[in-house]
Simulated assay, not measured.
Amino acid sequence: MNKVTPLISKEQIQEQACEWISRIDRGLEDRERNQLQLWIKQSDNHQSSLFEMAALWDDLSVMHELSGLFPLAEKSNADAQQSRVFLSRPFMATAASFALLCSIMFMWMQWQPQSDIPQQVQAQSQVHETSVGEQKTIALGDGSLIALNTNSAVEVNLGDKVRSIKILSGEAHFEVAPDANRPFVVAAGQNKVTAIGTAFNVQLLENKRFELLVTEGKVLVSEINQSMPDDIHKLKTDDFSALGTIMVSGDTAVFDGFFSEPMIRLSLDQVQRNLSWQQGMLVFQGESLEYAIAEMNRYTAKQFVLKDEVIKARRVAGYFKVGDTEGLLHALQNNFAIEHEVVGDVIYLNAAQSH
């Protein structure tokens, strides 16, 4: 079994450094001092981030503690004192709360949704799209919401008898407002998904295939040409057997006119992880590095290419802001000793050569 290596971004390291600074300020126990030394030895980035945060903390007791633990802190101590000449009194007065604010700011920045206030759509028929790296939330005139992921497009037609959506490309999540007189139908590939008071996610794949994840309620999946009764919202579950396949909250499957892969039931945590893109995040929990790189490539114009076959199968865990090219390169260097070379819009990744 391949070992799962956690990918630690620069922001995560800085957040951890903030937590250590806070502990140092209130006084370290012997056990904590040993843990700090181990954390420092794990990476040079840990040490540099710790000193950087300590300088901003602006407390001589913290720098004194660090100088006793690590010789390099003496230089940081001198740099910190020199920087104090340029610090205003208001800044110094608020420095004591820096670690707490630092942690909160990192978490807030990482988990902010990429979309602004939903763009309301009243028009009968309209195409909505996002560019690479862009995400957008659209409020339809009926009260439904569509969250578009990167490089995606949908065609919306709010008719008198049916609300029709067609996935043209990419990925979208739908929160459907109830309307007994107008079914909400999403066409994707060779199938259509009819909402029955629900929320669900659709990602269009290659060769007219698509992946469906139901996040609330239930949906009916049928072939694109399957006719539907006008009173579909009045039907009971047993009545749907002749029309298609019923999927409920937590169910996910890939379709190609029929099931191309078995239906899977996901836990709540797995569902939330699959939808983390709505918060502008990508979460990996043991997937291959090749898969992780392919996901990152969806969100940036610059494309990553893994040149070494041996590193493709390495399994990773961690979370990143979508499109955070610098953060990913930092994590790959820090965790895998993977170097990169930029050629135009392509970033080639290679295992570092031992000297």
Rank of each mutant, 00 (worst) to 15 (best):
K192T: 02
L168D: 05
L266Q: 05
K41Q: 15
S222G: 08
Q203K: 11
L235T: 08
E129P: 00
A294L: 07
V62Q: 05
D239L: 11
E74R: 12
Q190W: 01
A313M: 04
Q333S: 14
V193G: 03
P229Y: 12
P113Q: 09
E19G: 07
A96K: 09
A55K: 14
T130D: 02
E11F: 00
L145Y: 14
A153K: 13
I13P: 00
L28S: 05
L289V: 11
S249E: 09
R209Y: 07
F320C: 14
S103R: 13
S267N: 11
Y291R: 10
S67N: 00
Q333F: 11
L101V: 04
I347F: 11
L266E: 04
N77S: 08
N45T: 08
L87P: 00
Q14Y: 03
H64C: 01
Q82G: 00
V132D: 12
S131P: 00
G217E: 14
E15H: 00
L60F: 05
N157A: 15
V156C: 08
L50P: 05
Q333E: 14
Q272M: 13
K208W: 02
Q82T: 06
D345F: 06
L87V: 03
V186Y: 02
T325K: 09
V219S: 11
H46N: 15
G327C: 13
S152H: 10
S97M: 07
A253K: 04
L275W: 01
Q12S: 06
G197R: 01
G170W: 05
Q303V: 14
D231T: 15
I338F: 14
K192R: 10
D160R: 15
D308W: 05
W277T: 11
R89G: 01
V176D: 04
L101C: 05
Q110P: 01
T237E: 15
V254I: 15
A199M: 10
I196P: 07
G344Y: 04
N45E: 12
K312G: 07
R26I: 13
N149Y: 02
A54R: 08
S144V: 06
L38G: 02
F336N: 12
V343S: 08
E74N: 13
R273E: 11
Y291T: 12
H340V: 07
F240H: 06
C18Y: 06
S267C: 08
Q14H: 01
N207S: 10
Q114Y: 04
A99Y: 02
V316E: 09
E65P: 10
A187W: 02
F255G: 02
P113F: 09
H330N: 09
N334Q: 15
S169R: 15
Q42V: 12
D116K: 15
Y319Q: 14
E206Q: 12
A55L: 10
F259V: 02
Q353F: 11
N77G: 00
Q278E: 13
S354E: 01
I104T: 12
G27E: 05
F70C: 01
F106Y: 15
A96D: 04
V283I: 09
S144C: 10
N2A: 06
A78D: 07
P183H: 05
G27C: 05
N225G: 08
E52I: 01
P229H: 12
